[in-house]
Write a protein that binds this DNA or RNA. Structure first.
Lengths: 148, 148
DNA sequence: GTAATTCCTATAGATTTTATATACTTTGAA
DNA sequence: TTCAAAGTATATAAAATCTATAGGAATTAC
């Protein structure tokens, strides 16, 4: 599996905050409950995203987390980058200091790795959390309503 | 890193065999030396690809491994699939039996995961080992020659 | 001040990855 | 026939990573 569980938790958490954008801070436990994430694990994840500048927190009573930007300015790529670091198909295709790969400049696979990285990056970068919230809303509308 | 070391070894090994296609079997130790792969580890990898039908082995003296098909019929996707299994961005986006994901049918991320998977698959599927060998040849020509 | 909440550090358990060791089987040539 | 080269199979260990939890410190609202 390419994306870690942690990263998926992070995406779902930000998605939850995007849904509640403009409503003040949301408690960790509420996010955890809404998105089925282990609370203590989520704590660390949210903290990490706060330090990266994507979330704002308020401590103490009535504290919690909120987005640092508008949902249309936050992309899936942003969050993945915080949790997993830059997408790396293989080690030597990363922009690491030279000399790590035994084949160095002449690796025949390198162009392919670069293409793959670019293709994924584009998809993640064009997916904003606003678009996800919008998709979610139209999704719930389409669902049959069993309530009376 | 998305691709395991093992998978990269597998790709390099098949690439090495593609370069030697039509020259009879190549010894494991020769492949290992040419591509900087731990010999014993490579043994297991080659065996796995043989069982998947991509390689043919000959035992005994003057034995070794060779491709089971023409290099233009073997793709990077084939080999990755043997070693890593089908590409899976996230668990619930795989074609697993339903009910694994807590969000099931209504996951807002699902279309994105499917797009990403498709984008990568296409790149890997269109890269044949023949094309890699060709690229490698033109690469070596471009290199300055320091030999006398 | 007290209760609620985030923040920080450490660490433990589980899983996966990577690699090696050992012993066995098959093959082909002298 | 005999021997050695080479692949086959199984077990396992070392290392790295992932996932998750625990406990207390700091902060804020009331």
């Amino acid at each position: 599996m390419i994306l870690s569980q942690k990263c998926q938790y992070a995406l779902r958490a930000v998605f939850e905050l995007a849904k509640r954008h403009g409503q003040g801070p949301t408690k960790i436990t509420d996010i955890a409950k809404a998105q089925a994430i282990p609370t203590k694990f989520l704590e660390a994840i949210l903290n990490q995203m706060r330090q990266a500048g994507y979330l704002i927190s308020r401590r103490g009573k009535a504290g919690g987390y909120m987005l640092a930007k508008n949902p249309d300015k936050m992309t899936v790529a942003d969050i993945i980058n915080v949790i997993e670091g830059p997408i790396t198909i293989v080690e030597c295709a990363a922009n690491t200091p030279k000399g790590i790969c035994a084949f160095d400049q002449n690796c025949v696979f390198l162009p392919m790795w670069e293409n793959a990285k670019k293709a994924i990056d584009e998809i993640y970068q064009k997916t904003t959390f606003e678009s996800l919230v919008t998709a979610d809303k139209s999704n719930s509308c389409k669902k049959p309503m069993y309530n009376i």
